[in-house]
C-alpha cells in the first residue's frame, strides 16, 4: 500500500486515537498517580493531576503491613504453580492431538472447551465443602489444583494450535533420520515448540493472576492472593484512596508488564487459535 496519506488526515487520526487511548487508560493512570499522593491530596476537589507533593509513603505503609508481601507471594505461587501443573498435563495431550490426530480428536477438543463453559457457581458448593472437609480451604495448594483444572482446556487448546503449526513432515524426517520418540521430543519438537509454550505460559499466568471467583471464595487470610487482598479494601471504613491506589498499582504492575509483552499471543490464545 504505497499510497500517500495526507498529513492533515494522519494528524486527525492520531489526535483522535491518542485521545481515546488516554481516556481508556485514564483509570489506570489515575490510580498510579494517586498512589503517589498524600491521603489529603487524593480526595482533593478539584482533583490534583500532577501538581501535588509526590510521596512514596503509601508504598512504604502498604509494604510494612507484611501481609501485602504474603499475598503477593500467594499470587505468584498460585498463578505460576497452576500454569506449570497445567502445562505438564497439557503438553503431552496437545502433542498427541496435534501429531497423531484420530477421528475423535476434534470431538475431544470441543468437549474440553465445553467444560470451560460450565459456570463455576454450579460446582461452588461441593468444591467448598470438599475443600473444607479435606483441609484445602485457604491453602495455596487447593487453589493451584482448582486453577489448574479450570485453565487446562485453554492451555491444551493454545498448545494444540501452536503444535499444529509445526509441520508433521519435520517429525517424520526426524524419524527417518533415526530419531526415536525420545530424541524426537528432545531435539526436534521441544526447540520448535518452545516459543508457543512460552506464550501459553505467559497468558495463563495472567489469567490465573486475575482469576477472582475461586480465589475470593476459597481463601481467607492465609492463602489469599492479591485479588482477595484488594477486595478487603471494599469495606467503607478504613478506606484510604492513596493506599488503595498503591496496593492496586503493585497488584497490577507485574501483570501489566507481562501483558504488554504478550499482546500478540493474547489474541490467538484467547480465541483458541481462531484469530491470529
Amino acid at each position: 500500500m504505497a499510497r500517500r496519506v495526507t498529513p492533515a488526515r494522519k494528524a486527525t487520526v492520531t489526535a483522535a486515537a491518542w485521545a481515546l487511548g488516554l481516556l481508556i487508560f485514564f483509570p489506570i493512570l489515575w490510580t498510579i498517580l494517586t498512589s503517589f499522593k498524600s491521603e489529603g491530596d487524593a480526595v482533593a476537589i478539584p482533583p490534583k493531576f500532577l501538581f501535588f507533593d509526590w510521596t512514596l509513603e503509601n508504598y512504604a505503609v502498604v509494604n510494612q503491613r507484611s501481609d501485602y508481601l504474603l499475598h503477593f507471594w500467594n499470587s505468584v505461587v498460585i498463578s505460576f504453580g497452576s500454569t506449570f501443573a497445567g502445562l505438564l498435563i497439557a503438553i503431552p495431550a496437545a502433542w498427541a492431538m496435534a501429531f497423531v490426530p484420530g477421528r475423535k480428536t476434534k470431538d475431544v477438543l470441543m468437549w474440553m472447551l465445553s467444560t470451560k463453559m460450565m459456570p463455576s457457581v454450579g460446582v461452588l458448593v461441593p468444591i467448598y465443602l470438599l475443600f473444607r472437609n479435606t483441609g484445602l480451604l485457604d491453602t495455596r495448594i487447593g487453589l493451584v489444583i482448582i486453577l489448574t483444572l479450570i485453565d487446562l482446556p485453554i492451555i491444551v487448546w493454545m498448545l494444540y494450535t501452536y503444535f499444529k503449526e509445526i509441520p508433521g513432515e519435520i517429525l517424520e524426517a526426524a524419524r527417518m533420520d533415526g530419531a526415536g520418540l525420545r530424541d524426537e521430543i528432545i531435539h526436534v519438537l521441544t526447540p520448535m515448540a518452545v516459543p508457543g509454550i512460552a506464550s501459553t505460559l505467559l497468558l495463563n499466568v495472567i489469567l490465573a493472576w486475575n482469576e477472582a471467583f475461586w480465589t475470593l471464595n476459597l481463601t481467607a487470610a492465609k492463602a489469599a492472593p492479591l485479588t482477595a487482598f484488594i477486595a478487603s479494601y471494599s469495606s467503607p471504613e478504613g478506606l484510604f484512596y492513596a493506599k488503595l491506589s498503591a496496593a492496586s498499582t503493585m497488584a497490577i504492575a507485574p501483570i501489566l508488564i507481562l501483558g504488554w509483552f504478550s499482546q500478540k499471543q493474547l489474541v490467538r490464545g484467547l480465541t483458541f487459535g481462531a484469530v491470529k
Partner: peptide, 19 residues
Amino acid sequence: PPSKRRLAMVFQSYALYPH
C-alpha cells in the same frame, strides 16, 4: 520403525529443522 529401516527420505516440503 522408520528409524530402523536404513532408509533416508527427502520430503516435498524439505522438512528441514528450522532451529
